[in-house]
Design a protein around this nucleic acid. Structure first.
Lengths: 236, 236
DNA sequence: CGCCTAGTTGAGGTAAGTCAATTCACGTGG
DNA sequence: CCACGTGAATTGACTTACCTCAACTAGGCG
């Protein structure tokens, strides 16, 4: 986490020590049970240490749009603390391990070490670039391109935390989850995956994504990982 | 702007005066000419004082996805400064008037008055809620629901700055622009608008949106304006 | 006066959805 | 140890929402 935030703001020893005090309660959540509920306020935020989760919104007719998946190192429910109201729910994909950050602690740290606040918010704003990318995905790309882009983005993010590379990665998602993330039906996700497998681009099978031809896939999806990177501290 | 930021962080007199120094150069841009280009860095940010603009991403095949429209009071190109790289372009819909905020000035202000930085980033993070809402729109709602939700959201935002109410508002957008925002074709936008007009829900004609039956429309679109509001300062 | 852009409408095509049946892996209880 | 149920993946047949192409209208402007 310190590494992540350090990308935006060079943190002082004091600020780092404040970060330390936040790192306290470890908690475990079981797969499939919501840990943040849409429409509730005053929640805690969490940092995911192991396992996968996803944030989503529910429509009244029961449909679900997954906004993003979270992998180790990501925040969970940060916005529900920042905006004092959760506009989305968060659910673990697998059993997960998190470290809890109390809303009150976080706000207190913000008040006394505003540079820390800046760093956190900066990181949050970078996440927005990802949501924008999803928007383009769903709005203007066909099913196969969406899927390709999605799998590549996940791969790139996992590579940053050492859980994947250009050959592939372990992926605990079901086709139903992918469907809800990509705005497709589960049946169509299946068809698209088969098609891509037959074309020798990617294979998703038994919880594992293998890039059969990374370059061709990246070309096909117009994938440019620039929006995921952050080079050096922006604020000295 | 001060009012907008004050919603997140109670600003001191000193911080307000720093804000003042930022408010300097007024500039005019003509409709249809990009003011921020995808893939460029080191740009200025702007605050829109009059007119409408939109931020978008271009795909290689020439398709365009509009991410959001900006109305008076909104930031333009803030992320291109924060992340030192523009991941999207911004283009005026009408002729617009803006006040320029130099990237260097902004970063300097961030360094010396970090609480100000916090406020700005907080506001930016609130904008993300809007993008998420669009994601749900495009991913899981049909064309009519999307359109309804879109028109209602614009109306609510314009009402906040006194440019609209529950009866309607002036709207300089073309059907082509709406199509690119909603991930539809222009032809289909036209059909959907006709349908909604015939059903007595909304009328969009001659640059003016009239809500013929606001309640029914809001019900139809599952529109909940909560994500647009912010009540009091979160940080004393 | 003619051109250009925005809007409108119709006809026909297609990507993706829905419904439904089948398989397979897994866990659970008799 | 086997019968059973359940959840994920798979595939086929059919439907539909939205797209594309195309023709036409109307206003603005050099």
């Amino acid at each position: 986490m310190a590494r992540k935030l350090g990308a935006f703001v060079a943190l002082s020893a004091h600020e780092l020590s404040v970060l330390e005090t936040l790192y306290e309660r470890r908690r475990i959540f079981a797969a499939g049970r919501d840990i943040v509920h849409q429409g509730q306020g005053g929640q805690s935020a969490y940092i995911l240490t192991s396992g996968w989760a996803f944030s989503y919104k529910l429509l009244r007719d029961g449909q679900r749009q997954i906004v993003d998946f979270q992998i180790p190192g990501d925040f969970l429910g940060l916005r529900s603390v920042l905006l004092q109201m959760s506009d989305q729910s968060v659910e673990p994909v697998t059993d997960i391990e998190v470290t809890e950050v109390l809303a009150s602690d976080l706000m207190e740290a913000f008040a006394y070490t505003p540079r820390l606040a800046t760093a956190v918010l900066w990181a949050a704003s970078r996440d927005e670039a990802m949501v924008v990318e999803h928007l383009v995905d769903i709005g203007r790309r066909n099913a196969a391109e969406r899927m390709a882009h999605f799998l590549l983005e996940l791969g790139a993010r996992l590579s940053l935390v050492g859980m994947g590379n250009k050959a592939g990665y372990a992926c605990p998602l079901t086709q139903y989850l992918m469907a809800d993330a990509l705005g497709l039906s589960a049946v169509h996700v299946n068809r698209v995956l088969r098609q891509m497998r037959e074309q020798g681009m990617v294979t998703f099978r038994d919880g594992f994504v293998s890039f059969d031809d990374y370059e061709r896939l990246a070309e096909f999806a117009e994938f440019d990982p620039a929006y995921l990177d952050q080079v050096g501290p922006l604020l000295a």
